[in-house]
Nucleic acid binder design. Structure first.
Lengths: 315, 315
DNA sequence: GAGCTTCATAGCAATTTGCTATATTATACA
DNA sequence: TGTATAATATAGCAAATTGCTATGAAGCTC
C-alpha cells in the first residue's frame, strides 16, 4: 500500500513533538491540517496510530514504527532543502574553471583562495588548457568557465568578458645585468638564454614573434616545458629571460624577485578574459565565482597602473 | 526553501532509471505527470536539474545531489509501505499476551511456537499475572490479551471468549501408589505431601478448597512457589500430589510422566478463555493470534475428550 | 533527412491542501 | 462532581496540486 510521504512526515513530527499542536508548529502548519492528515492516515490504513481517548497523545506500536520511517524522510527533506538553499544562493556547488597554466597558477589560484574565504562550500575544479581546447571543453560542458587570452572568437555561442589587457613583458630576476643598462634597445636580450613557455601555449608563439622581431637567428633556449613555479625558480637563479604576461610578473614581483625589463614588447591584439557559453543558465556558484574574478581583476588592473606610474617616476 | 518530498522522489526515480519514461514507470505514474513535476521543480528552484538538449538525459550536479536525498526518501517510503502491508494483514506487529503461569507455560508457549511457524514476524511479548491484575493490565493497555480462568467479570468494558472448561484435577506421577487402588474415595490424598501452586494463584485457592472438602486439617505442603517446570520435575520424582488444570496435565502427560488421579474434583464455576477490551479495535496481529489460540483450543478440547474416553475404556 | 523514441505541453476532472471558525473531549483542579 | 483549560477533531471553502489523455516538439539512429 502506497502511503503519502508527507503524511508520514507529519506523523513523525507529531510523535516527536509529543502532540498535534506542537508537531504542526514544528512543520509550520496549523493544527487542523495535521489533525486531518492523521485521521486520513488512520482511515486508510484501517489501523489506529494513536491510543484513543488518552490525552498525552500516545502512539500505537504501529504508529511509532511508521513514524520512524517518516522521521527518516523528514531528515532527508531537511537536508535537501538546505542543499537547495545553498545552491540557490551560490553558497554551495561546483565551479569548473580552466585556463592557461601560467595565468591560473600566478593569479587565479590566489583569487580562488580569496573566493573560498567568502564561500567555503563551493568546490572549485581547476584544469589547464589552451584556446581551441578550452572552447571545446566549455561546449562539451566539461568546464563552466575558461580564463584565457582570446583574440578571435569563432562561433557566436560563446560569451567573452574581458578582464585585463593581454600584455606581455620580458621577465628576469631583479639582479639581472640588463636592468643596469641606461637605454635598452631590444636586441641585447638575444645575448641571454631564454626559457621557453609551455609548448603550444600562446606565450610560446608570442615569444617566437618577439625574438624574430629582434632579428633572432639562434637564441639559446636551454629550458623548456616547466610550469610557472619551475620557470620562476629558474629565472631567479640565472640571468635567463622569458616572456610572461604582465600580470604574472606583477603577481610574482615580491615572492620570486622577478621583474620586467623596461622594454616595449609588441603584444598581439588580445585581451585576457572570462569565456563562457552564451545565454546558457549557469549556477549561482559559477556566477558568483565569475563576478569575483572580474572584480578582483578590476582591482588588480588598478594596482598595476599605479605600480607602473611609480616605476616611471623612478626611471 | 521547502521542497515537496514527492517531487524529490520522482527526481530520484528518473535519474536512477535513466529517463523520464522509465522513472515514471518505476513509480507507477505516467510520463507527463513526472515530466511536469520536474519542470515545476526546476522552475521553483531556478536551477536546471538536467542538462538541456541532450538525449540520454544527463542530470546537473545539483540535480544529482538533490536526487540523492530523494532516493533516501524513496527507500524510506518503500519500507513504510511494506511495514503497513505487513501490519494490515497481521503478518507483523506485536502481541502482548498475559496469563496465569501454569497455563501459559504448559499450553500457550507451545501455541505461540505454532503461531510463529505461520507468522514469524509477529513479536509476542508474554507476561504473567492473575485475574484482577490482568484486567488492569488490559485496561491500561499494557497487554492486548489475557488468557486466564474467569468466574465473574466486573465491569462491562471487557470481552471474554471461553475456550476451555476450567476443570482441575489432582496430578501425580504415573507410578503413584494411589493409581493402583481400586476405588478412590478422596481422603486418601491427604496422606501424601502436596505441592502448593504459586501464591495468590486461583489454583492455590482451588487447592485449599479441595483439601478442605476432604476434611483436611494439617496436610503436609513441603514445596511452594515453583513454576510449572519445577512442579512437574518435583512431581515426577516423588509421590507428592498437586492440583493442576486438566489441560496442563494433559499437555504434560508424555514429557513429565504425569497423570491425573481418577477423582472427581469440585471445580469452581469457571471457564478458561481469552480476555480483551470490548469494542476496542485491535491490530490484525492480535486478532490472528487470538484466533489461533481459540481454534487450537478447539482441537485440544477434542483431543482431551477422546483421551478421556479411552481412559474410561481402560478403567 | 526519414523514422523512431523520448520528452514537453495543453486541457480537464478529481483530489488534496491549506486556512479559519467552531465543536468536542480529556485532564486538572477546586 | 463539576468546571475551567487545553488539546484535538470537524466543517466549510478557496487555491493548489495531481492524475489522466491527447498531442506537439526535439534528439538520436541509420
Amino acid at each position: 500500500m502506497k502511503l503519502d510521504e508527507r503524511h508520514l512526515i507529519q506523523l513523525a513530527a507529531v510523535i516527536n513533538a509529543g502532540g498535534v499542536t506542537e508537531g504542526a508548529e514544528l512543520l509550520g502548519m496549523t493544527q487542523p491540517a495535521v489533525s486531518r492528515t492523521l485521521a486520513l492516515l488512520e482511515k486508510r490504513l484501517g489501523e489506529p496510530l494513536f491510543v484513543k481517548g488518552r490525552r498525552p497523545l500516545r502512539p500505537t506500536p504501529f504508529g511509532r514504527a511508521l513514524a520512524d520511517h517518516g522521521q527518516a524522510m523528514l531528515l532527508s527533506s531537511r537536508k535537501a532543502s538546505e542543499l537547495a538553499d545553498n545552491f540557490r544562493y551560490g553558497r554551495a556547488g561546483t565551479v569548473r574553471v580552466a585556463g592557461t597554466q601560467f595565468f591560473m597558477d600566478a593569479l587565479i589560484s590566489g583569487l580562488i583562495a580569496d573566493f573560498h574565504n567568502e564561500r567555503p562550500d563551493v568546490r572549485v575544479v581547476q584544469s589547464y588548457g589552451y584556446m581551441p581546447d578550452l572552447q571545446d571543453a566549455i561546449r562539451a560542458d566539461r568546464v563552466d568557465l575558461a580564463i584565457c587570452p582570446v583574440d578571435v572568437l569563432d562561433g557566436d555561442d560563446m560569451e567573452f568578458q574581458s578582464i585585463l589587457a593581454g600584455r606581455n613583458v620580458v621577465a628576469c630576476r631583479v639582479t639581472h645585468p640588463l636592468l643596469l643598462k641606461r637605454k635598452l634597445k631590444g636586441p641585447e636580450v638575444l645575448d641571454y638564454p631564454w626559457i621557453a613557455p609551455p609548448p603550444n601555449s600562446p606565450l610560446q608563439a608570442d615569444m617566437r614573434a618577439l625574438l624574430l622581431s629582434f632579428g633572432s637567428t639562434g637564441v639559446s633556449v636551454p629550458y623548456i616545458g616547466g610550469s610557472l613555479a619551475s620557470a620562476i625558480n629558474y629565472l631567479t637563479r640565472t640571468d635567463a629571460l622569458t616572456i610572461l604576461p604582465h600580470g604574472v610578473v606583477f603577481a610574482y614581483r615580491k615572492v620570486g624577485d622577478i621583474t620586467a625589463l623596461p622594454l616595449r614588447v609588441p603584444h598581439p591584439q588580445r585581451a585576457l578574459g572570462i569565456l563562457r557559453l552564451a545565454g546558457s543558465p549557469q549556477s549561482p556558484a559559477v556566477t558568483a565565482f565569475s563576478n569575483h574574478i572580474a572584480t578582483s581583476f578590476g582591482k588588480l588592473a588598478e594596482l598595476i597602473k599605479r605600480h607602473e606610474q611609480s616605476v616611471v617616476w623612478k626611471g
